[in-house]
Computed example of a mutant assay.
Amino acid sequence: MRTGRAAGRTGYLHEAVCYGSDEELLAVAVPFLVGGVEAGEPTFVALGERTGGLVRSALPAETKVEFLTGGDVYGRPTAAIRMYRQLLADLVADGATAIRIIGEVPTAGLGPTWDWWARYEAAINHAYDDWPLWSMCAYDTRTVRSSVLADVAATHPCFATADGGQLPSAGYVAPETFLRRERPVLPDPIQAAPPLVELADPTAAQARAAVHGAGQGRLPGDELDDFVVAISEVVTNGLRHGRPPVRFRLWAGADRLVATVSDGGTGPDDPYAGLLPCGDGAPGGLGLWITHQSCNHVAHYRDADGFTLRLTAGRPPLS
């Protein structure tokens, strides 16, 4: 039986915790976690090193909360969804009827790569709704940009408050609506220079060869291999499911590669494409799912010329 504000609910309860002091965070997090443990619910913390340490120190001794390494959980949005869905399925299979988690997007994800974490926050309203999960997503209003907080309001149905209550989010929109919004995609600074490689209607093999050649000495071998796979999938999708011409461009910096693949079409119809495995055979669904797990940032946009995916390997810009 579910307890607290999740009592009587089915599916996912997704709350945000927007706090302005460490004390405010603890006022929400500690009762949430202690309440879960006391009710016999599997209870997890997936916060960063600083905030996770604060919570650990504030919990009563012997509180049986499991601490997940936030940096490992939130490496990439699609990987986080995959991991959590498996965790939730395993817990329910073992008999859990209620689960609690508090987590946070890593600091690096609140900068130029926030767009795909915003998409994550929207998508999980659907992705986790098959399980009896109550989660809180923590955001520090002292450091988080106002534009990020606006997205937090749009992707969380409600806010947890320090007095133990809950406020509905006036800015919340359905995840499908949020995911279909066109978001501005700022160019990576290395895109200010002409591309190192530019190909029209390339084969997947040509694109792979270009990436492999440019990435030597810039990226670790396994990371380069992942990026080659991602580029191959995206180029193949463009050729099979997009509208010609397909255009491939590649930029190389000291610590990263950036590639764009464009075609004259409108892109996938599924708003969850890339974030969730596509089980209905939608065009390109599996390729986009693989791509989102093989890159350190994926952005997309539509304009008068068609649909573009931008993929980054290596270290995305910090600002």
Rank of each mutant, 00 (worst) to 15 (best):
M1S: 15
T3A: 13
G8A: 02
T10G: 12
L13A: 12
D22C: 04
A27F: 02
V28M: 08
V28L: 12
V30D: 11
V37L: 00
G40E: 01
A46D: 07
L47T: 00
L47W: 01
E49P: 02
G52T: 04
G53D: 04
L54D: 13
V55W: 03
S57A: 15
K64F: 02
G70N: 07
G71Y: 06
Y74M: 15
P77E: 04
A80D: 09
R82H: 14
Q86A: 09
Q86M: 09
L88D: 03
A96Q: 13
T97W: 05
I99L: 05
I101M: 15
I101C: 12
I101A: 13
I102E: 11
G103D: 12
G103P: 07
G103W: 10
V105H: 00
L110G: 06
T113V: 14
T113R: 10
W116P: 00
Y120E: 05
E121Y: 10
A123S: 03
A123Q: 05
I124P: 08
N125W: 14
A127Q: 14
P132Q: 10
P132M: 08
T141P: 03
R142S: 11
T143K: 10
V148K: 04
A150S: 14
T155P: 06
H156I: 07
T161K: 00
G165S: 10
P168F: 11
A170C: 01
G171T: 08
A174K: 02
P175E: 01
L179E: 04
R180I: 07
E182Q: 08
P184I: 00
P184E: 09
V185F: 02
L186A: 10
I190W: 06
Q191K: 01
A192H: 08
P195L: 11
E198R: 14
A200I: 12
T203R: 01
A204L: 01
A205G: 14
Q206W: 08
A210G: 07
A214W: 07
G217L: 07
P220K: 00
G221V: 10
G221D: 13
D222C: 07
L224H: 04
V229A: 09
A230D: 10
A230V: 04
V234T: 14
V235E: 07
N237C: 01
G238P: 06
L239E: 09
H241F: 14
G242I: 01
A252L: 12
G253L: 11
G253C: 08
G253N: 10
A254N: 14
D255S: 05
R256Q: 06
R256C: 04
S262R: 15
D263L: 06
G264V: 07
G264N: 11
G267S: 09
P268M: 10
D269W: 00
D269S: 14
D269P: 01
P271F: 09
A273L: 02
G274K: 08
L275W: 11
L275D: 02
L276Y: 06
P277E: 15
P283V: 00
P283W: 04
P283A: 07
G284A: 09
L286P: 01
G287R: 05
I290V: 15
Q293G: 15
N296H: 15
V298P: 12
D303G: 05
A304V: 06
F307T: 03
T308Y: 07
L311C: 15
G314I: 13
R315V: 13
P317R: 13
